[in-house]
Design a protein around this nucleic acid. Sequence first.
DNA 1: GTCTATATTCTGATAGAC
DNA 2: GTCTATCAGAATATAGAC
Lengths: 212, 212
Amino acid sequence: MTSSVARGPYKPGKIRQQTQEKILQAATQAFSVHGFNGTSMQSIADAANVPKANVHYYFKNKVGVYTAVLENIIGLWDTVLNDITAEHEPKQALCDYIDAKIKFSRTHPRESRVFAKEMLSGAPHLQAFLEEDYQRWFSGRIAVFTAWIAAGKMQPIDPAHLLFMIWGSTQHYADFEPQVVHSLGTEALQQHHFDQAAATIKQVILAGCGLE
Amino acid sequence: MTSSVARGPYKPGKIRQQTQEKILQAATQAFSVHGFNGTSMQSIADAANVPKANVHYYFKNKVGVYTAVLENIIGLWDTVLNDITAEHEPKQALCDYIDAKIKFSRTHPRESRVFAKEMLSGAPHLQAFLEEDYQRWFSGRIAVFTAWIAAGKMQPIDPAHLLFMIWGSTQHYADFEPQVVHSLGTEALQQHHFDQAAATIKQVILAGCGLE
DNA sequence: GTCTATATTCTGATAGAC
DNA sequence: GTCTATCAGAATATAGAC
């Protein structure tokens, strides 16, 4: 009767996975507000409701926790961000991408801020990512825009700087939330604020690209 | 012969002012890379080439250094940023503002990053600024855009979100420099990169507002 | 796997001589 | 005003009992 079946739906390493995930979420929250150096292992442990030594048991050290948080964020993108492909018309692809990016700022502001802080510090822990997967993805997107322009489907606009515009505009709502909140005279950003943001960004970008 | 005139152009407090400025610049650089908690008073003192105790002599404590850096940044804006006023036509005003913002990202990337990091942390040291001077300035800009739209000088675009777009797009080049650098396949951002960025942003924003 | 106790290092801040 | 010496507290990390 020591069979795992008798004890219900047991999965090997389930506790390990759950505890690790709990620590990861607590760390993401802490890093997003206080940064790497401003976050103590003790505060992560407290927020995850585990003893401090357990954080060291699941992760090699503080840098290990931090890189795990960063990898988790990069993985999230593949899950929730629509991609820009030549299979769609530019108008539809841009709308979908802007909507997905704005939605990410609303549903994952902590992840957005951890990534932004890492960038602001010179991205010391993202060198490998920037030089491999990222550059491959970016080149592919440039190619899509270039094809659209060559096919006369959109005005000739520098694709790289157009992408930077979309990123900067959409991430602003997560990264500069205090400024946005005080600008709009609200207490916290609501769904309708994000809807209005997405509508304005799509309006300007589409007209700016001659797609209206 | 103890007259200050006999010793040349002596100015009271000149040494104090120079040392303070030296510390302020060193602190801006350090905070922009390592953040508040990642920056030690020792590292600021070393970079400014003064003993650590002198930093404590000129500033009350670490928070005092940090708030002085923030106040210096806010003061910079009045000096180098063109304002958006109803006296100009929208096209000219937007072009001038975008140019000034891009120039600020190029000439003051460290200041931009310190401010961005403060925002990302929830702007705990900028509450007073956000609730007073900033809100007054922002309301005034909204009024200018509203007047332009009412006079039929530009398409009806949400002024607040349009401003966020301009901010996000222009600040991106200072705040996300590592990503921009790897995207453009360069080693460091040059003047022509900023020129191309400004040209693209103006192209999209102007067409997006129906100003071309 | 979990947790307590501890070693080691670093940081902000100050006292006090010059 | 300048600088050396030092303190008190906090943080990372690990050893070792359970």
